[in-house]
Design a binder for these strands. Structure first.
Lengths: 330, 330
DNA sequence: CCAGATCGGTATATCGTTATACCGGGCTGA
DNA sequence: TCAGCCCGGTATAACGATATACCGATCTGG
């Protein structure tokens, strides 16, 4: 490995001068700068980021910890974050929190967090205590709907309002016998609980009754089977609010399995606005989680925290917006 | 920040003893070990990974560089890699290569690569020269179909055989007027070129003719419009090989837009076996890229390289397998 | 009973940068 | 003319861990 001293020797200057040139610091004459750059080029030198990080205490890298890589929701969020961070010369590095089968949550160790300037932690599927254990020097921003220690900055979706809007949209489109697929009150304000609350509020306001069909896992396969089964028992259901778009995909298939048509017999609305929803048939009506808003707020927050600004823990809620497509009539 | 010296002082031992305890090295008595662990616990100490990395030269972290986070293909691969690496106590960190609008490919700098023990580089969308410029100390394994400097280890899919199998499957199902959506000979053995070659080989072997409909971007929206348009011009087309599952989603929509039915009027087959293909209607027949095989080979390779084993650059090709579903008849 | 091995533990140098303090010389201004 | 200032540049000490060599005591064997 060629180091800064090699370059310094080759250019006949001190290491500090090399460092100064490479970091565009003042105090270096134009001719010296050229000599150094030439040496850098000739030796193919590149800085050792690990050493730089140790000494400077900064990494110019933000960590994003997600429960799983293969969920499109996080992929879409990560892509937008990466672009926004790149605009200010920083990098995004994504890690998975539950990779080890024992669920050891190593990505949550304070040691790993300290290797970033800040960490965005998706708390979906994490427990209050897992997060409460964190004693960290670096800023941590929580993302997602789960009750978490209030000392952290925390961004959530407006799940209740979104779910309420989704349900109202079903009612406006003529549905009267509604089913929510996935969800149920989990006893704390989780994503599931809040969306269920929104669903029930819309029902109440319209003077209707509805049912909730709980699911163990919010995946298409489970949802498909459960919905088909339920529709066979109760073919009068004419509107389904799926707790996520992933579930909605299963719901669409389940409705078909039961021999019914979307949206003619049953309207379906999802939640998350994943990219594929636009392209399937019928297009999936859904609630948009406003990733752009989240990205903007998150970056503003970490910038201020990294700058050392003292402000009370921020608990922000992103507005949610209905995206009507072919799976509803409206 | 509490450091190792703080712990050493608190336990009344030297820093090396603390280090020895924390790394399970021998040469430390049982009582001393307890004293140290107690101090670690009391002070809430965790090692500084940056310092550890600088001194030891190892990071226990593997980098995966993908062109974009929001493509499900990479998400699914990353998830499997993360789990496999966790089994041996290592971590996976995912970066996006083209986050900056200027396409500066910073993730490809030798400096960033050096922050990992090894890097898996998805070369989709990269140019030969971008990769050829890399002078790196750490092992780099290329993933994906693109002609690249032979001095690197390189894993690819068997695109030609897969595409041929897909096309043959269409023919077996009764299609005679075939269209490939996306693809075309790019003049070098890219994913696009090789899948096109496979398509044409199957046609030739069956004594059929077919057409290729090139696409600028392999995304559903573009594919949908292009296919609908093409089917209106030529309604006799009765089988479509979509170059990727993402494209296939658009193709399915485009076929519907043209007033035709899948698979009755037009059979469709994709490539990549993305998770959603199982759940849409009709289920998408596709070619499975064998991620498990790739993960196994990749890990074996980097383990040997990290261990310093000298072996010629490995160029491996993963077998591809047909997954028949409802979008084809057979 | 003593040489040599073993055990528990430590002092010191080092990884490759950046922060800090400092230094000599040419200018400026009174 | 000389005090003081800026300019270009350097020497040295960290950052927080690990590798290496070494050391004194206790154990073992002939």
């Amino acid at each position: 490995m060629t180091t800064m001293s090699d370059v310094a020797a080759a250019a006949g200057v001190s290491v500090m001068t090399v460092s100064n040139v490479l970091n565009d610091r003042p105090k270096v004459g134009p001719d010296t700068r050229l000599r150094v750059l030439e040496a850098v080029d000739r030796l193919g030198y590149e800085v050792n980021l690990t050493a730089k990080r140790l000494r400077s205490g900064r990494t110019d890298t933000i960590g994003l910890v997600v429960p799983r890589f293969d969920h499109p929701y996080f992929g879409e969020l990560a892509a937008k974050l990466a672009v926004a961070l790149a605009a200010t010369g920083r990098h995004l590095s994504v890690e998975q929190s539950n990779a080890s089968p024992e669920g050891e949550l190593e990505a949550l160790s304070q040691a790993r967090i300290a290797t970033y300037d800040a960490v965005l932690l998706s708390v979906v599927g994490l427990h209050y205590d897992d997060v409460d254990r964190l004693r960290t020097t670096k800023p941590v921003v929580l993302l997602g709907e789960q009750e978490m220690p209030p000392r952290f900055d925390h961004l959530q979706l407006d799940n209740e309002t979104g779910a309420c809007a989704a349900t109202r949209h079903l009612i406006d489109g003529g549905s009267r016998r509604l089913l929510m697929t996935g969800g149920g009150d989990e006893g704390f304000p989780s994503m599931s609980t809040m969306r269920t609350v929104g669903f029930e509020r819309a029902l109440r306001e319209a003077g209707l009754q509805g049912a909730v069909l709980p699911l163990i896992r919010y995946e298409p396969t489970d949802a498909r089977a459960a919905v088909a089964e339920r529709l066979r028992q109760d073919p009068t259901i004419d509107g389904i609010f799926a707790i996520t778009d992933q579930v909605a995909v299963g719901v669409l298939a389940g409705v078909r399995d039961a021999g019914l048509r979307v949206p003619d017999d049953v309207q379906v609305v999802g939640f998350d606005n994943l990219a594929f929803g636009e392209h399937i048939d019928p297009g999936l009506t859904t609630i948009d989680p406003n990733h752009d808003w989240v990205v903007e707020r998150v970056i503003d927050l970490i910038d201020r925290r990294i700058a050392g600004e003292q402000l009370a823990p921020q608990h922000l809620t992103s507005p949610a917006r209905l995206v009507p497509r072919g799976s509803t009539r409206s």
